[in-house]
Design a protein around this nucleic acid. Structure first.
Length: 422
DNA sequence: TCTGAATTTCCTGATT
DNA sequence: CAATCAGGAAATTCAG
């Protein structure tokens, strides 16, 4: 793939750097920046990228450690650059839940996540190091999922969409195609290949953000903060293998970002990927009791979020699959797998996941819960006392071994459950 | 086209 | 007070 990239560069008369290797997205020693950048010039490897309002410094090779934290809502970030700070990361969380984030420099403790939270950096006047700070933007000035429409820097190997109500992590910079005429497919932002011949496609369709009332002057997703990448192996695979969440190493290996001061933009910004309307909470006027149903939106290209779960899977089957995937454990996880007891930790996130699986964008936890309650009478679930806690029935657990980690016979109950009395 | 299963949607009321 | 639970009722989707 490096050969293909080199050929592309050669065809565009773009110098390549021999130190670029397939698994290295970033270089450890950026060359000096040019004296100025020409927006019309070809993208040279040493050109600067635009500086965003959320400029940060160097970027750590972040480890998102959800499973191993004390709380399922706790996310730890490792300081792989070893300087005592976690750099250049933005965290987007829009599920409305309070979360406490801890970094090597201390607890950040953001609590208001009615809007997307952003963790941005502040440069220390002494050390020049950027340290994470917590920024909870107001409802009218937050940054709604800026990565989504630009699909820049997507690493497909950890590209599971965690969703509208879920978490998206980014490091500090944005990948840009090396030339305006080029575009990247998300699938080619792997650690081993880049290709420019497939049109860039947004990973997610633009969607209304549930936490914006109106009037937000959002026209263009802002560029993500830029910073010098101080890791040479900041790849998805370097993350906690049990929690391979979506990750956007934004800077291709052949770009360098100046952290020593403001930099002029070196290429035209991408077209506005969002409109204001994309982020306005859909208005729900008062409805009569018997309301006309909204027409179902056209099916997306692939509504199934988890590829190994058939779109026709029932909710309980979907649940079992999700429960098997550690990366979704922050949404729902076993409380006692032997007993079939599980608990939702992030109900909106799971609802969004289920909704996408079924191409139901308006899915909510309330609806999921209603569907789950129907399982009581079908002896698929049984009632337990705790909030957000459900339990697969002993029949299901015993008969189909779905509650132990041994075998997967979930397909067997599909047919049998169809005979259950309504 | 019809039918039934499995939700999905909306609702009211109770509980935490 | 908000979130969640419980369950009724009706609409929707889809497979057979």
């Amino acid at each position: 793939m490096a050969t293909a990239l080199a050929e592309t560069y050669h065809s565009l008369n773009i110098p390549t750097d021999p130190t670029i290797v397939a698994t290295n997205l970033w270089l450890s020693s950026p060359p000096p920046p040019p004296p100025h950048s020409d927006p019309t010039a070809p993208y040279l490897s040493h050109q600067l990228s635009p500086i965003s309002p959320y400029q940060t410094g160097s970027t750590d090779n972040l480890t998102v450690d959800i499973m191993n934290s004390a709380s399922p809502h706790h996310h730890g970030y490792s300081d792989t650059s070893g300087d005592g700070a976690v750099h250049g990361m933005q965290l987007y969380r829009s599920n409305g839940h309070s979360t406490d984030y801890t970094t090597p420099t201390g607890s950040l403790g953001c609590t208001d996540i009615m809007t997307t939270q952003q963790y941005t950096g502040e440069r220390s006047p002494d050390s020049g190091i950027y340290s994470p700070t917590c920024h909870s933007p107001s409802r009218n000035d937050y940054d709604p999922l800026p990565l989504v429409p630009t699909c820049t820097g997507l690493v497909s190997s950890c590209s599971d969409y965690l969703g509208n109500e879920m978490l998206q992590y980014s490091n500090a910079a944005t990948i840009h195609p090396p030339h305006p005429a080029m575009s990247y497919s998300p699938s080619h932002y792997t650690t081993t290949s880049m290709n420019c011949d497939i049109p860039c496609q947004p990973m997610y369709s633009p969607r209304p953000h549930p936490y914006v009332d109106s009037g937000s002057p959002i026209g263009q997703a802002p560029q993500l903060p830029m910073g010098m990448m101080d890791q040479t192996t900041a790849t998805c695979t370097s993350m906690n293998a049990s929690n391979p969440i979506q990750f956007y190493p934004e800077t291709p290996s052949d770009f360098y970002i100046d952290t020593n001061g403001p930099s002029p933009p070196c290429f035209p910004p991408p077209p506005p990927p969002f409109t204001t309307e994309d982020f306005i909470r859909p208005h729900h006027p008062p409805k009569p009791n018997k309301r006309p149903r909204k027409p179902k939106p056209p099916a997306t290209v692939d509504p199934s979020e988890i590829k190994d779960i058939p779109a026709s899977a029932q909710l309980w089957e979907f649940l079992l699959k999700v429960l098997k995937k550690p990366k979704y454990a922050y949404m729902v996880s076993w409380e006692n797998q032997q007993d079939g007891l599980f608990r939702f930790h992030d109900p909106p996130a799971f609802a969004a996941l289920w909704g996408r699986h079924r191409n139901r964008p308006s899915m909510t936890y309330d609806k999921v819960a209603r569907a789950l309650r129907y399982y009581y009478r079908r002896d698929i679930l049984e009632q337990v006392g705790g909030r957000l806690t459900y339990k697969f029935s002993p029949r299901l657990c015993k008969q189909f071994s779905v509650c132990s980690s041994s075998s997967d016979k979930t397909s067997a109950i599909s047919s049998s459950s169809k005979t259950a009395k309504k």
